[in-house]
Design a protein around this nucleic acid. Structure first.
Length: 590
RNA sequence: GGAGCGGUAGUUCAGUUGGUUAGAACGCCGGCCUGUCACGCCGGAGGUCGCGGGUUCGACCCCCGUCCGCUCCGCCA
């Protein structure tokens, strides 16, 4: 149908007869001359239809509308002196049309396929086939493909084997809510879609595959966010006879490879940040390291004051921490009130502040502190004239949450975040377990198959709550610009430790045997030490292309209500289908 | 489940203390135009102001409810 692609035509093609096909991106109809920018996936080419060359074609040319599908035959020629378009790769040439064929017409568009202001996401996704015609959107998927292909070639080269695992699985306890699929041939029984291929990849290690990977869809029936939707893609990998260092080292090499290939960026050594430090310094286990504004503990200095709010908080086991924000000492009292409201929105009871000026300190609470304490505070925060120190006093979790979010929102507002920068970190030494107030027991922070640090094994045995709280996991998260883009661990490879772990989670021997007896059994047949990691591909791609939502890098995304606007999934089904599955609906108010 | 913001022409948005006929830009339709490239010029059509109820002489505007979208909390081993 075509001899060339629109975007590839250059001066070297001048004089050649070519055939092109594509969409009418824009028409400039002068009554006499008609210009059409013809677009295909490679780019744009200007075709010119003039009455002298072909009178009858010229009449048809007036009928061309936006997004008509055209095929043209003609000769490439240099554009006349002074009419070249330096903004187009094909701008030196144009095609003098000898034959024009309208392959298909196009209804009036629901929105402009342009790079101007975007229509609502809902409309874009309902007509995703039009939205995806925009080069900028298409480029996201092109980039995604490149990233995947670099990851594959890297892992293939490293000796990893891609093995497919089942999509119809057993439902397992713990973790996110499962998507369930009823089994017709087993009435009353359900499959669960995988939250990740976790158990299968461990089984593959027992089977001796040594190095496994898969780029695979995972499903979690939880509420959506800008960086979360119910089906998402993981780069899942697992290795045998490895330590944390091996998995992190390999992942780093892979990340380095992908960034070099796609963005021509060098990712240096990725720093390690123990969980505890991350929480202390940034108030978050996925800190954005592109800017400072670190949290500092002020408890010892605050004790030397008469400020009751702080003292009481410390007395109740709370904490007093602060961040130092540069250049906002000019904020008015009203501005500070707005900031305080923001902090309260994050859970804090209030926000205390001290302005640092050439002339001294300004603050409603300054009077409670001796001058040398104020100076010591400023020194600890490395605050200089023009800065403002923001204090939060509360229970530890509230202090961390509030200051972490304040830190992020102020950095964004003040333009402290450098564009185009990628700051990775490994967050390590996570707690193995987390106390769940509601359930009255511990939960696995990562998942129940994560190995404890060897030295902490005794504490796991003890079973006392404080001991269990202190057990560290051999787990690691990969964090990029404030997003968790990956996580993994060294797994339990001994059946006795695994059983102990399940015991701590109050999963009795019977339930354990029922829910994942197959894994416990497999671990008894010479399971090698092993570990691995999963990368969130959608998030990684989102960050690499500079998108602000994973929906921008997913071809057919779902809305916040987990609906696909294109197909209107999910939908009601025919009662016959339900009868076959022995399912009766019981919907309140239906 | 909760909080915030939004829903007005095909699209992106504006809309006066509640007051006659709800506007702009782009798009669309018609006409003119032989060097444009966001072509230009002239003319035109196009509105259930998300939906339902209430207050009022009168509602895009105020109140209540509801639906949808986005962001966040909860949730996300």
């Amino acid at each position: 149908m075509r001899s060339h692609r629109c975007g590839e035509l250059r001066a070297e093609h001048i004089g050649q007869d070519v055939e092109l096909a594509g969409w009418a991106w824009r028409q400039r109809d002068h009554g006499g001359l008609v210009f059409v920018d013809l677009r295909d996936s490679s780019g744009l080419a200007q075709v010119v239809i003039s009455p002298e060359v072909a009178g009858d074609i010229h009449n048809h040319a007036h009928a061309i509308r936006n997004e008509y599908v055209l095929r043209v035959k003609g000769r490439v020629r240099r554009r006349p002196e002074g009419t070249a378009n330096p903004n187009l790769p094909t701008g030196e040439v144009e095609i003098e049309v000898h034959r024009l064929e309208i392959l298909n017409e196009c209804k009036t568009l629901p929105f402009l396929i342009d790079e101007g202001p975007e229509p609502s996401e809902n409309l874009r996704f309902r007509h995703r086939y039009l939205d995806l015609r925009r080069p900028s959107v298409q480029n996201h998927l092109v980039a995604r493909n490149r990233i995947v292909s670099h990851i594959r070639s890297f892992l293939d080269h490293e000796g990893f084997i891609d093995v497919e695992t089942p999509v119809l699985n057993r439902s397992t306890p713990e973790g996110a809510r499962d998507y369930l699929v009823p089994s017709r041939v087993n009435p009353g029984s359900f499959y669960a879609l995988p939250q990740s291929p976790q158990l299968f990849k461990q089984i593959l290690m027992v089977a001796g595959f040594d190095r496994y990977y898969q780029i695979v869809k995972c499903f979690r029936d939880e509420d959506l966010r800008a960086d979360r939707q119910p089906e998402f893609t993981q780069v899942d990998l697992e290795m045998s006879f490895v330590s944390e260092e091996d998995v992190m080292g390999l992942t780093e090499a892979m990340i380095r490879h992908v960034f070099r290939q796609l963005l021509e960026k060098e990712i240096g050594e990725i720093p390690r940040l123990p969980f505890r430090d991350a929480l202390e310094r940034f108030g978050s286990d996925k800190p954005d390291l592109r800017f400072g504004l670190e949290l500092r503990d002020m408890a010892d200095l605050v004790r030397n004051s008469s400020f009751k709010v702080f003292l009481d908080t410390l007395g109740r086991g709370g904490r007093v921490k602060a961040i130092c924000v540069p250049g906002i000492s000019g904020y008015s009292r009203k501005d500070m009130d707005v900031l305080t409201e923001e902090a309260q929105g994050y859970g804090a009871k209030g926000l205390a502040w001290i302005r640092v000026k050439d002339t001294g300190f300004e603050s409603p609470i300054a009077k409670f502190f001796p001058e040398e304490t104020l100076k010591a505070m400023a020194a600890r925060m490395e605050a200089t004239a023009g800065d403002t120190m923001l204090f939060v006093a509360d229970q530890p979790a509230v202090v961390a949450e509030t200051l972490s979010r304040l830190r992020g929102s102020l950095a964004r507002r003040l333009g402290l975040i450098p564009e185009g920068e990628y700051r990775f970190a490994w967050v390590t030494e996570f707690p193995l377990l987390e106390w769940d107030e509601e359930l009255g027991r511990h939960q696995a922070m990562h998942h129940p198959f994560t190995a404890p640090v060897d030295e902490d094994l005794e504490r796991l045995e003890s079973g006392r709550r404080e001991d269990l709280d202190a057990v560290r996991a051999r787990a690691y998260d990969l964090v990029l610009n404030g997003f968790e883009v990956g996580g993994g661990s060294i797994r339990v490879h001994r059946a006795d430790v695994q059983e102990r772990m399940l015991g701590v989670l109050r999963i009795g021997p019977e339930e354990a045997r029922d829910k994942f007896g197959f894994l416990l059994e497999a671990l008894q047949y010479g399971a090698p030490p092993h570990g691995g990691l999963a990368l969130g591909l959608d998030r990684l791609v989102m960050l690499m292309v500079g998108a602000s939502s994973i929906r921008d890098v997913i071809a057919f995304p779902k809305t916040q209500k987990a609906v696909c606007p294109l197909t209107d999934a999910p939908s009601r089904v025919d009662p016959k289908q339900l009868r076959e599955l022995h399912i009766r609906l019981d919907i309140p108010g239906d």
